[in-house]
Nucleic acid binder design. Structure first.
Lengths: 342, 342
DNA sequence: GACGTGAGTGTTACCGGTCACACATCGGAT
DNA sequence: ATCCGATGTGTGACCGGTAACACTCACGTC
């Protein structure tokens, strides 16, 4: 009863309470907490007992104030959580957990530079130790370039020619591979439903497709530009379905491929007998479409992991090495790709 | 040069620097920052000029230390970002941004109580002001129950009979509605591919389906239990496709419905002429499946918004009112539901 | 026996804000 | 003329940790 600190009970104990209970100084408690070797076994035991007894948990805010490190990483991510970015976030989360970092996500409504800068500012205000953008749009990665603070930063899914360290899938290689596969099946050329302008992945996938065609001297048809959504794949697909010379299409993502499949079906063109289709992303339902969709699988989770590793390295070394990490893709052949009709 | 504080330049200015530059005390700067009315126009102007001049930004960590408020909300979310949870997170993010909160996400590998408690602990260690679980599994919401601290908390997508405030879609009503719709189309009964045990949504959807059948005295077939993935819908779908008396199926989510469509197709049963199918979620590609999928659309983004509003209210009032917020669902009729074959 | 050395511990200042309170000034009511 | 309250500003303590440094003591060395 008498002792007023113990009587309250509800108040969260602080380091001084532990020190008092263990009969040592605050500093010694701090040493125990930080695994400082210069603490005797017996003292350490006493302190640990006191901590357990009182249910002591260090106050991360106070620690952050003195050390200048919050243990929080900021992630700027597009408002609409598409499949890819969500998976990347998953990978980031995994590594962050193991490295004992919390991640603070800041969604942006649009990918223009001003919005992204605003999001970054808010993260900086919240005192993050490092910055990540999941940057499907090229403008997003650029927003990391000229920040006032010299804060470690990294982008996922962004162009490699930026000064910011980047982890991204080998989009170009994957697209090229898919296109080659179709050519090897005997198709004279391959059409392309592209992603929107301004998207890094769209540009790379288109480039990879073009390279593969040029490498064998095939015709390079005009790419049809969609917006990643199934609907645009459907609308553009109707145009393609109307042309008898179209026998193979490489769609820049699975959603658009999905819309395309439907358009082809409505037009009475069979897949894969009349037209072959390959998408990108390997969304979970790709294997269960009718027919199961052949696709290029970028390992998003791995990209997330790698980008965080890049960031942690940067934070450890203190330098802003311009590193790039390229994640290979995998071509998944299912049932929408087959030999060209003769 | 003489003045060592000004000479450095790179060091981030603190409140004392602003005070010195404006010729006032720290406290006055603090007042300006917090919109305290008792500051004269002229002083305020001077201080604001000094802040701008020096590029001053308040240190949120220091502020958090004294006020005890970090301005960060913790969200526990399942590792694998399914469509629903990702959308919920989007809604949470929107409201958080407007209310000037940052959100710290903590993914958990599995939904068992221990993992969730561990994630919660890590969030508490990082000093969040409030706690949210996106809790598709019932165990997740329960992990919020007996926390040591009296911290505001809320769950999304969780059972309403918990003591924790909850925002969730009216799963039961939606399921019931979909089932009724099929019955009205003349089907004698409706089969059900359910979600996994332990899932709140699975239980509610199953209950809604059952209620609708019982209301009209229809047979209640044994539900087939899947795991949300397209594959399980496909495997269970093969069993259903083999039974000639199956004319209508309510699948607990669109992925399983997708697998089911494929199984029906392989078995030569036409949709919707022979068998009608309704799913739940309205995933973006639902409208472009073959045929376009009828489904129940819960407004996930709205659920996220509402849950955050619930949390903010709770934080403002300081009380733990046990509030529930129910979000209505919408039945989207596309092409997989039609009159029963006679 | 004096002395350097390293382990183990405590003291004090400090991080960058906010809070409680003291103080000065001024107009208006008594 | 006096006292009051409102307004505007400054002072010092404090939030809960960590860094820098000082101190004590046992031990081995010359």
């Amino acid at each position: 009863m008498g002792d007023d600190t113990a009587a309250v009970g509800a108040a969260r104990p602080v380091m001084a309470d532990v020190a008092r209970a263990a009969g040592v100084s605050k500093q010694t408690v701090s040493r125990v907490l930080n695994d400082n070797p210069n603490v005797s076994r017996t003292t350490r035991a006493k302190v640990e007992a006191a901590m357990k007894e009182l249910g002591y948990r260090p106050n991360s805010t106070a620690r952050a104030l003195t050390t200048g490190k919050t243990g929080v990483l900021g992630v700027v991510v597009f408002d609409t959580f598409h499949y890819g970015p969500a998976k990347v976030l998953e990978g980031i989360g995994q590594v962050a957990r193991d490295a004992d970092y919390a991640i603070s996500v800041m969604p942006v409504r649009s990918a223009d530079r001003r919005s992204v800068r605003q999001a970054v500012d808010r993260l900086l205000l919240h005192a993050v130790d490092g910055l990540i953008t999941i940057a499907p749009e090229e403008a997003m990665a650029r927003a990391l370039l000229d920040l006032p603070h010299r804060i470690p930063r990294v982008a996922v899914d962004a162009s490699f020619d930026s000064e910011v360290p980047v982890a991204a899938a080998d989009e170009r290689g994957g697209a090229s591979h898919a296109t080659e596969h179709l050519l090897q099946l005997g198709h004279r050329t391959v059409w392309h439903i592209a992603g929107p302008d301004g998207s890094f992945a769209a540009r790379e996938r288109c480039a990879g497709w073009r390279e593969a065609l040029e490498r064998v001297g095939a015709d390079v048809p005009q790419p049809l530009v969609g917006d990643w959504e199934a609907e645009s794949g459907y609308l553009l697909g109707r145009e393609l379905a109307a042309r008898a010379d179209v026998t193979a299409v490489f769609a820049a993502n699975d959603f658009m491929a999905l819309g395309l499949l439907r358009a082809l079906r409505e037009a009475g063109r069979r897949v894969p007998e009349d037209v072959s289709v390959i998408g990108v992303d390997d969304i979970p339902e790709a294997a269960y479409l009718i027919p199961p969709l052949s696709t290029v699988r970028p390992d998003f989770v791995e990209a997330g992991r790698r980008c965080l590793e890049l960031l942690l390295e940067q934070m450890a070394s203190g330098r802003n090495q311009s590193l790039h990490s390229v994640i290979p893709t995998q071509l998944i052949i299912r049932r929408t790709s087959a030999a060209a009709p003769h």
